[in-house]
Design a protein around this nucleic acid. Structure first.
Lengths: 195, 195
DNA sequence: ATTATTGATGAACTTTCGTTCATCTACGGG
DNA sequence: CCCGTAGATGAACGAAAGTTCATCAATAAT
């Protein structure tokens, strides 16, 4: 090797551009963005990024699009000491949040939490929950059930009398199903954005 | 008005295409995709979709990109009645969680929460937090600070004596910085996976 | 039936895109 | 110190992009 590898920095700028425009720009604009004087440099860069797995081509080979790795972010271990450079440390782990939270995309849906009946579980109003329909619900799971034709998020609990729904908030009563308990899906994750 | 408006259907197909390719295709390919014989039809369609707020142009006016409304599925409304088919609507593909939580990828890192000092804020042990380094920290924000060479997550608070760190848990004391308060970044989001 | 309106057509046109290739530059290894 | 290598340059090229506009088609209202 000869020149210091500036590709990570270039990738970072492309990621920022993508976050703003939801699009990988033309080679000409990549050159502008990164300070290249020639589109050929952009072309080379994209090929390298493709080789590294950050971008790929559309099915019709029309253009570059980001791949899963493009969205991965570094995870910093809270315990480790050497803090400042941690974000640039290449050895660290990087994950994509979608990948991390969603394992079966085809049967996963997102719901918005309403009310405060699960605050003990750390689910606040307007949090998003990741719901896996089709996963078997077990005792103790947080589930989305359909009660009175409405979604409700509760713990799934079980005693001698059978399954029932338990809120994560002492201010709410448990819900005993009249007949069959209708489970919509299992909550496998949650996320929240701070204004 | 004259012809029945087929735009919603066309939009749906574009959304499907986008879900697969993370990209709005060229006018020519839009024509192929939707059965137009002419690119001019695609051009007209995009202008109408733009007027309706589903797509917009990049800052540099290079190309069409989806706007927020493009992804705006009637997020499965907890209150609504017609549940079953809601999840099967192809337009309701999962939103990009990464997109949703991360706006500046290059200065965003993930940290793992340790301890229970922020349970009131819904941050539990082993939750992941999305940290924007470089964003200005304001009074009331949840921030990651460096105290005694360790990361700590707390509310940033301010009184006559200056800035200090306030835990989201009455069992912990507030932290007054000896000198300068060292802010690593601002917490802009969080997520959690249920085993 | 007639008309008004909106979307689709098809061709011509200009601009921009991406590729190629020979050449140049900068850094690290021997 | 000199070389080897990988990335950057710049120009030229063909292919594809998007725009424009006159015209056609289909529908809903009168």
């Amino acid at each position: 090797m000869a020149a210091p590898n500036r590709d990570p920095d270039h990738l970072a700028r492309l990621q920022d551009y993508y976050a703003q425009n939801r699009r990988i720009p033309s080679l000409k604009r990549i050159a502008e963005l990164l300070g290249f004087a020639s589109k050929a440099a952009s072309s080379g860069l994209m090929k390298r990024l493709a080789e590294a797995g950050f971008v790929e081509r559309t099915a019709d080979d029309d253009a570059w699009i980001p791949s899963a790795q493009f969205f991965a972010r570094p995870v910093i271990d809270t315990v480790r000491a050497g803090l400042p450079q941690a974000a640039n440390d290449p050895r660290q782990e990087a994950i994509g949040i979608d990948d991390y939270l969603i394992s079966k995309p085809s049967r996963t849906v997102l719901l918005v939490v309403k009310g405060d009946s699960m605050i003990e579980a750390g689910l606040f109003e307007n949090d998003h929950i990741v719901v896996d329909r089709g996963a078997p619900a077990r005792n103790g799971d947080i589930v989305v059930a359909i009660v009175d034709n409405e979604f409700t998020v509760k713990y799934l609990a079980q005693d001698k009398r059978g399954f029932f729904l338990k809120p994560g908030n002492p201010a709410y009563p448990v819900i005993r199903p009249l007949g069959q308990l209708e489970i919509y899906g299992v909550v496998v994750g949650s996320f929240r954005k701070y204004a």
